[in-house]
């Protein structure tokens, strides 16, 4: 099937089997290998990308279903020369060890902060009606879809907290 996908602001035309996941389209067809394949079943979060500003697992998405959507990958957030604030914070706080889950963590955390800004509650929010407050527990709950097998969680949480603090000041 011939489809066109809008990724990081650029339109790409590609010919894919309908079975191709968005993740495989990115990695195998477009050489955007920042998004990682961990479990391939929506359990680990290493494949997290944003579709129309919302984070999703690209391994549980068909590329053909995302024509016309605005897709952002880790490559679209920043580059080694011009890192996004979240990318910088991950480096600054050592928010990784082996680095395999890191692109997914960063994309997920970036989108998670927008969800928080929009006032979305979480499982650990005491009160559903008022706007949620940022805390370590909120970060842990909202990031539970991203696993880190090196368990670099203290650095990951610190990086996210730091980015959130800088955004609000």
């Amino acid at each position: 099937m011939n489809i066109s996908l809008s990724i990081n602001g650029t339109t790409h035309d590609l010919d894919v089997d309908p079975r191709t996941t968005l993740l495989d389209a990115l990695r195998h067809h477009l050489d955007l290998t920042g998004s990682k394949k961990g479990c391939d079943h929506g359990q680990c979060g290493a494949c997290t990308v944003m579709v129309n500003g919302r984070r999703i697992n690209s391994c549980l998405a068909l590329a053909v279903m995302h024509e016309g959507d605005d897709i952002t990958t880790i490559e679209g957030l920043g580059s080694p020369e011009a890192m996004s604030p979240m990318q910088e914070a991950f480096v600054g706080h050592d928010g990784f060890q082996c680095g395999y889950c890191t692109p997914g963590q960063i994309v997920s955390a970036t989108a998670m902060l927008s969800e928080l800004k929009e006032g979305w509650p979480s499982h650990v929010s005491d009160d559903l009606v008022s706007a949620p407050k940022m805390s370590r527990d909120e970060i842990a709950e909202r990031m539970s879809g991203n696993l880190c097998r090196c368990s670099a969680y203290p650095g990951i949480v610190a990086a996210i907290q730091d980015t959130a603090d800088k955004e609000t000041t």
């Binding site: 999703i56 929010s125 559903l128 539970s144």
Partner: peptide
């Protein structure tokens, strides 16, 4: 939903992950 059907909001938020709930 948050105001009038909190049981539903709570149940949804107790399921899956942020990424999965978005899809």
């Amino acid at each position: 939903i948050r105001r009038d059907y909190p049981v539903l909001s709570r149940a949804l938020l107790a399921g899956a992950s942020g990424q999965l709930r978005n899809k």
